[in-house]
């Protein structure tokens, strides 16, 4: 009993609960913002890939290949330590933003998730049943209308399970914030460990918090799948 009290004093006492609160809100903010912006970016990119656009397809392919071909940590470091090497970056109007670790991380995370999501959506667009597109054509829909009304809604549905993995990977990838001077959940754990000279005590609540977040994510996706895959489920009656 005494041990438990001691443990909770260690991880929550002495103002440490503030690190956890800050960590949770920063992790959630970074992950949701990068997923949101990355997701929006990825839709036109995926369409360009799926349509084999002669100019854009190779460009988008190079982009996704780079961001899927290198670790997120390396991408973040390239941005974070690379940019200040150039004086024109430090003199530009962007510097007040790029000087912040938060922006470097957000840019790296967004581009990374955009690359993965582009490929997920591309695969989904290509997997839209041909019959649906034929039917749309037969109804006289223009290519744009076909994309908007038939192909994209169908593709987004198909990509739900794969995308839920991407969301979880992004959450796990966000521990990279903790190696920058940003206090996310992992950073909070490291700060508490180093404040009390312990090696793993702080990682226990850290692991539990990530598990709870993943539980929430899988729940949300289960709901979404239930709703948007309703037409695919076998009839029960």
């Amino acid at each position: 009993m005494e041990f438990i009290i001691e443990y909770f004093t260690l991880i929550l006492g002495d103002g440490n609960w503030k690190f956890w609160l800050e960590g949770i809100s920063l992790t959630l903010m970074f992950v949701s913002l990068s997923l949101l912006i990355g997701g929006v970016l990825s839709i036109p990119l995926a369409i360009a890939r799926a349509n084999r656009h002669p100019i854009f397809n190779p460009m988008v392919w190079s982009f996704t290949y780079f961001f899927r071909g290198t670790p997120l940590l390396v991408q973040t470091y390239l941005l974070y330590y690379g940019l200040p090497q150039f004086d024109f970056v430090k003199d530009s109007f962007m510097w007040p933003m790029l000087r912040e670790a938060t922006w470097c991380a957000l840019i790296a995370f967004t581009l990374n998730t955009a690359a993965y999501t582009t490929e997920i959506f591309r695969g989904a667009i290509e997997a839209v049943p041909h019959g649906e597109i034929e039917a749309a054509k037969a109804c006289g829909m223009s290519p744009f209308k076909r994309m908007r009304r038939i192909i994209l809604p169908s593709a987004l549905r198909i990509s739900l399970p794969a995308y839920s993995n991407e969301v979880i990977f992004m959450l796990h990838g966000s521990v990279i914030l903790g190696v920058l001077p940003i206090i996310d959940i992992f950073g909070a754990a490291k700060t508490i460990n180093s404040r009390y000279y312990v090696s793993f005590e702080g990682f226990i609540p850290c692991a539990i918090l990530y598990m709870i977040l993943v539980f929430g994510i899988t729940r949300i996706f289960r709901m979404l799948e239930k709703r948007y895959h309703a037409h695919l489920r076998p009839r029960t009656s």
């Binding site: 330590y81 200040p84 000087r99």
Partner: peptide
């Protein structure tokens, strides 16, 4: 307050203007 793993990382970031 920005915590760094090593003093050298903090030197890099003050030099970088962060």
């Amino acid at each position: 307050v920005k915590p760094y793993g090593t003093a050298e990382e903090a030197y890099l970031d003050i030099e970088a203007g962060r």
